[in-house]
Structure formats: C-alpha cells, structure tokens
Design a protein around this nucleic acid. Structure first.
Length: 172
DNA sequence: AAGAAGATTCGCT
DNA sequence: GCGAATCTTCTTA
C-alpha cells in the first residue's frame, strides 16, 4: 500500500520471485554490494527499488538479515484501492493491465528510487505491506526472463488470478 | 575506454 | 514479431 497526501493506493500481491543470497547467479547481489543494490542488504522487510533497461522501476522486498543480500521481486498485483490514480499513472490502461508485470506494478504505485530503502513494515513509511486475503492456490515455476540460474523454481503466483503476469499453468 | 547485457514494456510493422 | 527507451554493471564481445 502507498499513502500520499491525496489518498491511498493499494493492491493485493499475486505473483513474486525470490532471489537467494550467495548462490543465486541471477540475483543483483550475486557479486556483492554496488550503489544500485545496497538496499538489498537491509534487514528483511525493506524496499529495494531499481531501474531496469533505463526505463522501468521494479519493487522488491528484502528477505534476510542485515548484511545479507536477498529479496523478493513483486511481479504482479490485483488493484484494490486508488484505481483511478493508478490508471492516470498508467496512461489509462485496463484494470487488468495496471500492475500485471513488475515494471507496471511499480509504475501503478508511482515508485522510483526515492522509495529505495524504505521500511515496508513501519507505520510511518509512505509505502508499506499489509496483511490481506491469502491466495487460494499457489502455483510455482521457474523465474521469468533470466539467462543465468534460470532453472530455479522460485516464482510463486496465485493460480486462479487473472492479474498474474506470466504463465499460470501446472508448471508455470 | 567502449560495448553489451539485463529480474521490461510499449508501439509500430 | 521487432526495435526503442536509455541506467547500471560487467566484460573485453
């Protein structure tokens, strides 16, 4: 959820990908800290927001203890609140496309590097995680769009959600 | 120092 | 289906 002066935007996470510490060649933290990825080393529950292809931002939630680089990429979400605001940010696309994909999700919430490093578990943060309705059935698959460590089954999604970005079949 | 690839998406052919 | 957009990091293509 994101709180701004003029209202709240909220969405329910329906698709994620995990990036492991140490052994995961696809992780931005695989080769150690850099200016871009340093917030991956924050304690679990912090935001890692980065720019990809010089064009889109992606939102991750850190997942390990302080000093260990790991995170969960939020790949897709079901818009719940502030949908008009999201549509304005997303050039008026259909609701089903507002947050279907990691770049689109961050764009719907209006995120950029100013949000990098925020504590997503703090009531004083403008961007935060809330508990919501649990997924009915969780599917898993390999992660999308990787060339290294592409075999790892670390993508998780709500099986019957139309807001998921990638394949929803038995094996992803 | 320069070039290529990358956790993506959009618009045009 | 393919190229563009254009930032950060890694390789030397």
């Amino acid at each position: 959820m994101r709180d701004e002066k003029f209202g709240r935007t909220a969405a329910r996470i329906v698709e994620t990908e995990a990036y492991l510490p140490e052994v995961d060649a696809a992780s931005h933290a695989y080769r150690g800290p850099t200016p871009r990825n340093r917030s991956m080393y924050l304690r679990r529950g912090h935001a890692y927001v980065y720019l990809i292809y010089g064009t889109w931002y992606c939102l991750n939630v850190t997942s390990e203890r302080e000093g260990t680089g790991a995170a969960v990429l939020l790949r897709a979400a079901e818009p719940l609140e502030g949908i008009a605001r999201m549509r304005r940010r997303r050039r008026g696309v259909r609701i089903g496309d507002l947050a279907r994909g990691p770049g689109r999700l961050a764009a719907a919430f209006g995120l950029d590097r100013r949000h990098d490093g925020l504590d997503l578990c703090s009531a004083r943060s403008e961007l935060w995680l809330a508990s919501g309705s649990p997924p009915a059935a969780v599917g898993e698959s390999v992660r999308i769009g990787l060339s290294r460590d592409s075999h790892r089954v670390l993508r998780f999604f709500e099986r019957n959600s139309v807001f998921v970005s990638g394949p929803r079949g038995l094996n992803g």
